[in-house]
């Protein structure tokens, strides 16, 4: 795809564990700048774990993740602060602060990290809320919003600092098709207007193929396919085909283990 030198994010043989359970196996890929990179996979395939490594919420071993050519395992606290100021993150739940209004939520990073005056911040907040379709909701508390609205407000907050890199976890889940399409268009516009690099974790096929410049398909912690949407679409890998064609899991696949577990149930 792209070399390590030109890519904004490079991942090399990344492995990840929860306790003793390994959840990611030798993940390697590159994310070129100014593109929308979609990470796809079924539930439990390790997408969110990979996402957490990329945003620095899960420690990474040496020489596994490089951001703009720098090994993040060697970053000091000040490097992380700089990185976090240059990214925007939308979490799966929206992660809004319940004690603040939407306006306060979106304004928070601007108030903390910039010298901007309150009227400029107010205008910026209104703009961001308008972009995500929440104009007029600025004085609402998160508890007064639906799940989809919370997610959109979370996106507005992620965009507050006009980040260079935007990480979005499941943007369309829980949204109606019209709003989801609106968010897809917004992500494309953000890439065009600001030259943003957007990393999207999703399992919504339609949305992924609409917005993605590059794609990564994961299953059980491993990469099944990586490349342009066309190359992924033409993949011969059976699990990729099954995922793309939305075929249900074949019965009998783990039948032996299932039967063994049934036999080991103790009778009372």
């Amino acid at each position: 795809m792209t070399s390590e030198a030109t890519s904004i994010i490079s991942v090399r043989d990344l492995q990840s564990f929860y306790g003793r359970r390994q959840v990611l196996f030798d993940i390697s890929f590159d994310v070129p700048p100014h593109c929308i990179f979609v990470i796809m996979g079924v539930s439990g395939s390790g997408k969110t774990t990979l996402f957490r490594h990329l945003i620095g919420l899960k420690p990474t071993r040496k020489n596994a993740v490089f951001i703009k050519g720098e090994d993040i395992s060697e970053w000091k606290s000040s490097d992380w602060q700089k990185y976090w100021q240059s990214i925007g993150v939308l979490f799966q739940s929206g992660a809004l602060f319940n004690s603040m209004t939407l306006k306060e939520n979106v304004a928070l990073p601007l108030q903390v990290h910039t010298e901007l005056t309150s009227d400029i911040i107010d205008v910026m907040v209104e703009m961001k809320l308008y972009m995500v379709g929440l104009s007029g909701f600025s004085d609402y508390m998160p508890a007064q919003l639906s799940g989809g609205m919370k997610k959109r407000a979370g996106l507005a907050r992620a965009l507050a600092m006009d980040p260079e890199l935007l990480f979005v976890d499941e943007p369309s889940s829980g949204l109606d098709p019209i709003t989801a399409a609106g968010l897809d268009d917004l992500l494309i516009s953000l890439k065009d207007a600001f030259g943003m690099t957007v990393i999207v974790v999703t399992h919504e096929l339609e949305s992924a193929f609409k917005i993605g410049d590059y794609m990564l398909v994961m299953d059980k912690g491993r990469i099944l396919a990586c490349g342009t949407p066309e190359s992924v679409k033409n993949s011969k890998e059976s699990r990729v085909r099954q995922f793309l064609e939305r075929r249900a899991e074949e019965a009998g696949q783990d039948m032996e283990a299932y039967l063994q577990r049934l036999c080991s149930v103790r009778s009372r």
Binding site: Q81, W84, L108, P109
Partner: peptide, 17 residues
């Protein structure tokens, strides 16, 4: 605790706060 399980603490960290 609720902020932790709702990823709000992670969100703060990712905002460099």
């Amino acid at each position: 605790g609720i902020m932790r399980i709702e990823e709000q603490i992670d969100a703060l960290k990712c905002m460099a706060i």
